[in-house]
Design a protein around this nucleic acid. Structure first.
Lengths: 203, 203
DNA sequence: CGGCACTACCTATGCGCATAGATAGATGAA
DNA sequence: TTCATCTATCTATGCGCATAGGTAGTGCCG
C-alpha cells in the first residue's frame, strides 16, 4: 500500500501525468520504491475516485491527450497522516541469505559466483546512490530543486537533509552487504582450501 | 518461488509433515524465510505432483492421520540445481526508507518515533539472531544437529560455518539499520533544535 | 469426564506486483 | 516522407502472499 504514498509524495511538488510519475519511478523515487506503469495508471484512477487526486485532460500536440493529476487537500492530509503513522515491518523473506545458509550444497565455484553476484549487485546500487547524493549536494536534482523552491525557507534545510540521510542509509546498507559477501568469499576459500599439510586435526 | 527451495532444504535432513515444516518456519528457517501454513500445504501437494517429494499417510493416535513427505532424488537434484544457479535480485521496495526520504512531512515526535520503531524492530531481530548464533556455537540446535549427524564428516565444518556466516550477515545488517536510525535521531534533534543564539547564519 | 490447548490440514478472498502484451499519437532524424 | 523512438495509456493473466476463517482428532490437566 506504499505505492499510493510514493505517488502522493511526488504530487506534493507539482501536478504530473501517469507517464511523468512512471518516469520518476524509473529514476529518482525508483531508488527507494519501484513500480511498473501497469500498476501506476490504475492506482491513480483509484486515488482520484478516493478524492486524493484530481485529474484534468491536457491536450498534447494536434490530436494527443494526456491526463494530469494534482493532489487535493484530502490527498495532502492522507499523506501527512501516513507520514505521522507507524509502519508495520514485513516478516523476513531473503533469498540471498536463504541460499547462503545452505551454501555447502553448491559447488565451490558456484558459491563464489553467488558472492560475486551479490557484490556486483550492491556495487551497482552503490554507484547509483552515490551519484544521487552528489546530485543532492551539488543541487543538480531537478525534482528536488522544484520541491525546495516550493517549500517555505525554514523547511528547505530539512527536506535536503532527510533525502541525504535516506541515501546514506542505503549506501551504508549496500556497503555492509558487500563486506558480508567478501567475508563469504574468504570463508569459501578457507573451507575449500587444499590441505597442504595432512594434519587433519581430529579433536 | 523460494518457498519451494526452503522446504526442500529442510526435507534434505529428514521426512517431515506439513505441520512440522510450518513449525520450522515459525522458528529456525523463519529467520530467513517466512511462510504461513496456508501457503505450505498446497505447495507441498504441488511439489509431490512435480515429483520432488513423496507423501505417505502416517497414523497418529486412534483415528488420526498425517501426511509425511520425504524428498526424492529429483527433489535433491532440483535443490542442488537451485543452489548452483544464480538469483535475480528484486527491485528496491523499502517503506522505511521511502518514509525517511520525506520525513520533513512528519511531526518531530512522529519522526523520532519512526526511528525508535526502526531501532526496536531491528533490536528484536538482533536478539533472535544472536540467540541463534549462540545455539549454533554451543551445538544446541536440534535441526542443525540432525543435519550434521546425517552429513559426511568432511561436510560438517562447512554446514555449520555457512549457517553461522548467514546469521552474522543478518546481524551486521540489523546493526547497520540501528546505527542509521540513531543517526536519524541525531539529525532530527539537530534540525528541530531551538535556535538558542539567534544568529541564523545566512551565507 | 469435560474442557482446552495443541496437532494437522484445508479453503476462500483479495491485494500487490510481475510480465507481457496492445493501441495511438508525437517527434525528429535520415 | 518515412521510420524509429518516445510519449501516453490501457488490459489481461497469474503468482506469491496476507488474512481469516473452518474442521477434526490428540493429549493432558483438573
Amino acid at each position: 500500500m506504499s505505492l499510493r504514498y510514493a505517488l502522493l509524495a511526488l504530487l506534493t511538488v507539482e501536478p504530473m501525468t501517469g507517464y511523468d510519475l512512471y518516469k520518476e519511478f524509473e529514476s529518482s523515487v525508483g531508488h527507494v520504491w519501484h513500480a511498473p506503469d501497469s500498476q501506476i495508471y490504475p492506482e491513480l484512477r483509484r486515488m482520484e475516485k478516493d478524492g486524493l487526486l484530481e485529474g484534468e485532460e491536457i491536450t498534447w500536440g494536434q490530436r494527443g491527450k494526456k491526463r494530469q493529476y494534482h493532489i487535493t487537500e484530502a490527498g495532502v492530509e492522507a499523506f501527512r497522516t501516513w507520514m505521522n503513522g507507524t509502519l508495520d515491518y514485513a516478516r523476513v523473506r531473503d533469498p540471498a541469505h536463504l541460499k547462503a545458509a545452505y551454501l555447502e550444497w553448491a559447488a565451490p565455484e558456484a558459491a563464489r559466483e553467488q558472492m560475486l553476484a551479490h557484490i556486483r549487485h550492491h556495487t551497482e546500487l552503490l554507484r547509483q546512490w552515490h551519484d544521487k547524493v552528489r546530485e543532492i549536494e551539488e543541487g543538480g536534482s531537478p525534482m528536488l530543486n522544484r520541491r525546495l523552491a516550493k517549500a517555505p525557507v525554514e523547511q528547505r534545510r530539512k527536506t535536503a537533509a532527510f533525502k541525504k540521510f535516506t541515501y546514506e542509509g542505503l549506501i551504508a546498507r549496500a556497503e555492509q552487504e558487500i563486506a558480508w559477501a567478501n567475508r563469504g568469499l574468504a570463508l569459501i576459500d578457507e573451507l575449500y582450501a587444499e590441505p597442504e599439510t595432512a594434519d587433519s586435526g581430529k579433536s
